[in-house]
């Protein structure tokens, strides 16, 4: 539904988005994950037609965002990070305005439907300026959905609202899964983990990793353990562990040892065997439960270590 090919955007000399490519299938929720200033908003602004790309292309459905901008825009619902609202309109008037502007059939009925869905119908005659932040967020979501677009782009929809409302917004996003393609950005890892089918991690304008949250975690999870070893001097344990092929590093933390492997093979059997053979006993071996956070930090870290393609003249 969304197809991004080598999309690039420069602000003057600064590269905001650097040749990124990804796809989002129909009915999929894709999370765009990255630290602040990674290029998430710029990417979304290009997909919504607000900013033209410097190079590369992207398609919404079968419509190119530059060549068929109007058709592409018709198929996108967008909630920018700042939740832009006309302060002096009523809740109903605001949604009706977008319904009419988007040329929805039976705009009044549709407005009522959408307001009902976000539980705003009771406040239909309130002025937008009187709404609390969480309600504004919901109003923004209603605006993005009023024309029932196949693609919905949400820029950090859970920022700056209270935890209860965060849960509501996340639930609302999850509810969109079946009928819409959702691209949403966040810098909160647990959020991406919780609701996304797929995660695209970007940093400094480049994609550093992408895949399902599970697959990304597995990359890291299989590779680190903590051990507790008895009846053996710590120095001896370090020595034994370091001798095992495939072990990248071993660190001692009080009574525990943390082992990192290079991921080339499963070393768990070797570890227990070697410890026992050396006369010790393995009291505990625990696979470190990593999260997207680790994936993220690693991805960002390794991108910083290999800064090729970072500067372009």
């Amino acid at each position: 539904m969304i197809e991004v090919k080598s999309l690039t955007r420069l602000y003057g000399e600064v590269i905001a988005v650097d040749h990124i490519s990804f796809k989002a299938a129909s009915g999929e929720i894709v999370g765009l994950l990255g630290p602040n200033g990674a290029g998430k908003t710029t990417t979304m602004r290009m997909l919504t037609g607000f900013l033209p790309p410097t190079s590369g292309s992207a398609k919404i459905g079968k419509y190119d965002i530059v060549e068929d901008s109007m058709e592409a825009r018709r198929r996108v619902g967008y909630l920018p990070e700042r939740v832009p609202l006309y302060q002096d309109m009523t809740v109903f008037g605001y949604i009706l305005f977008w319904a009419q502007l988007r040329q929805v059939k039976a705009p009044r009925d549709r407005t009522v439907d959408v307001l009902k869905r976000f539980d705003l119908l009771g406040r239909r005659d309130k002025l937008v300026r009187q709404l609390s932040k969480g309600l504004r967020q919901r109003l923004g979501l209603a605006q993005a959905l009023v024309h029932d677009p196949p693609v919905i782009i949400l820029d950090e929809p859970t920022i700056g609202i209270d935890p209860q409302q965060v849960i509501e917004v996340r639930q609302a996003v999850r509810d969109l899964r079946k009928s819409h393609t959702v691209l949403f950005s966040t810098h909160i890892l647990s959020e991406a983990e919780e609701i996304c089918d797929r995660v695209v991690i970007i940093d400094k304008g480049r994609i550093v990793a992408q895949g399902t949250p599970d697959a990304l975690e597995k990359q890291v999870r299989a590779n680190s353990f903590t051990l507790e070893v008895g009846r053996l001097a710590p120095e001896r344990v370090l020595e034994v562990l370091r001798a095992i092929p495939g072990v990248a590093s071993v660190k001692r933390r009080d009574a525990h040892f943390s082992v990192e492997t290079d991921g080339s093979r499963d070393v768990r059997g070797d570890i227990s065997g070697a410890i026992v053979a050396a006369g010790g006993e393995l009291l505990e071996m625990k696979q470190v439960k990593s999260s997207l956070e680790d994936v993220f930090l690693r991805a960002v870290q390794s991108a910083a270590d290999n800064p090729q393609g970072q500067k372009k003249s």
Partner: peptide, 14 residues
């Protein structure tokens, strides 16, 4: 200032 121009310019409107 309100940012609504971003929504207007991303709507299918010239």
């Amino acid at each position: 200032r309100e940012g609504t121009v971003e929504l207007l310019l991303t709507a299918p409107v010239s």
